[in-house]
């Protein structure tokens, strides 16, 4: 019998996240996939999860799961795991996913594997591939012990694949214990997004510290517009407050795999490489010939960003005009 694999279905901004569907697809491919869906969710959530391979969904629409961070979900999921003993419990490497995996690894005394890029499951034993230290190593890791194994999976590790079926739904109760209300979300503030969506962009033009000041990002926006792409940034640049966090690519921030990634003034810290190394083609412009970014670049130009990029923009404009 196929092994039982559970996936935590995450809802962000009223939608099942793409990473949930990626992980669910993988789970359905290697075992019997079931999903846990807690808190308010869109009307078609159950159908969507079924479409991507969930045979069964444990469901509670109780708002407590939305209002008290991960605390109620920890209790509910731990209870379900103790009852049904799935082989694997999979989470996305997201804010909620990390906190849930962390707490459950304590409750179940199971430990957890983070940053999983791929995994195999054989006779109750899991072997996960972890791109460590920004992808300079590829480690194989397992979890000792006989209980449910917890894995945190990196976004974009698997292709979402539809395999339509109708999922059965089992209602679960929300915990009433007051201890799950220790933390309360009192407000949600959306920061305005600029430009096209990073995760779906085919072309990304990204900037790092080498741009020296926030205003210089307009140069990258011009280039991105010409290529029909989106603008991204490194953590250092986001931390400096030059651009919003929504543009951050890296270990923290978004994982992207565009057809083309143009890195401008980016040295290529481990933090950043983890989030963009999977890009199909990488072009890097940096004044330091030793910058690690050149090790992953298909074309590297050692030079001044403020000379190379304007020339590129002019050239593209000419070609477009011609």
């Amino acid at each position: 019998m196929a092994e039982l694999i559970w996936v935590y279905a995450e809802v962000v901004e009223g939608k099942i996240t793409p990473t949930t569907l990626e992980i669910l697809s993988k789970a359905a491919e290697v075992g019997t996939a079931e999903a846990i869906l807690l808190g308010p969710a869109p009307d078609d959530a159950v159908k969507t999860l079924g479409d991507y391979g969930a045979g069964k969904i444990y469901r509670s629409p109780d708002p407590v799961f939305h209002d008290c961070l991960t605390l109620p979900a920890i209790k509910t999921i731990a209870g379900l795991i103790e009852k049904h003993h799935p082989e694997l419990m999979l989470f996305a490497s997201s804010y909620a996913g990390r906190d849930l995996a962390a707490a459950l690894s304590v409750v179940l005394d199971s430990g957890a594997i983070t940053d999983v890029g791929d995994f195999v499951l054989k006779d109750g034993r899991v072997e996960a591939s972890i791109p460590a230290l920004g992808g300079s190593y590829l480690n194989t890791t397992t979890l000792a012990g006989s209980g449910t194994k917890i894995l945190l999976v990196r976004p974009k590790s698997f292709e979402p694949k539809a395999r339509p079926q109708t999922a059965s739904v089992e209602d679960v109760e929300a915990p009433s214990d007051p201890s799950v209300r220790k933390a309360r979300v009192t407000d949600r503030v959306a920061v305005e997004q600029e430009g096209p969506d990073l995760e779906g962009a085919r072309v990304i033009v990204a900037g790092g510290r080498g741009l020296r000041e926030a205003e210089k990002f307009s140069l990258l926006r011009q280039l991105a517009d010409l290529l029909g792409g989106a603008v991204a940034a490194t953590r250092a640049v986001v931390d400096a407050g030059w651009v919003p966090y929504s543009l951050q690519v890296g270990q923290t921030g978004k994982t992207v795999k565009p057809d083309l990634y143009i890195a401008c003034g980016i040295s290529g810290a481990v933090q950043h490489l983890s989030g963009m190394k999977g890009s199909k083609t990488i072009i890097a412009i940096n004044k330091d010939p030793e910058a690690p970014i050149f090790q992953v670049a298909d074309l590297g130009v050692v030079g001044d960003v403020f000379k190379v990029v304007p020339q590129l923009i002019d050239d593209l404009k000419k070609r477009k005009g011609a």
């Binding site: 430990g111 957890a112 590829l138 000792a144």
Partner: peptide
């Protein structure tokens, strides 16, 4: 005490 065991390290 570690549950997580690295089986092998390799290069991608």
């Amino acid at each position: 005490g570690a549950r997580e065991k690295v089986l092998s390290i390799g290069r991608p």
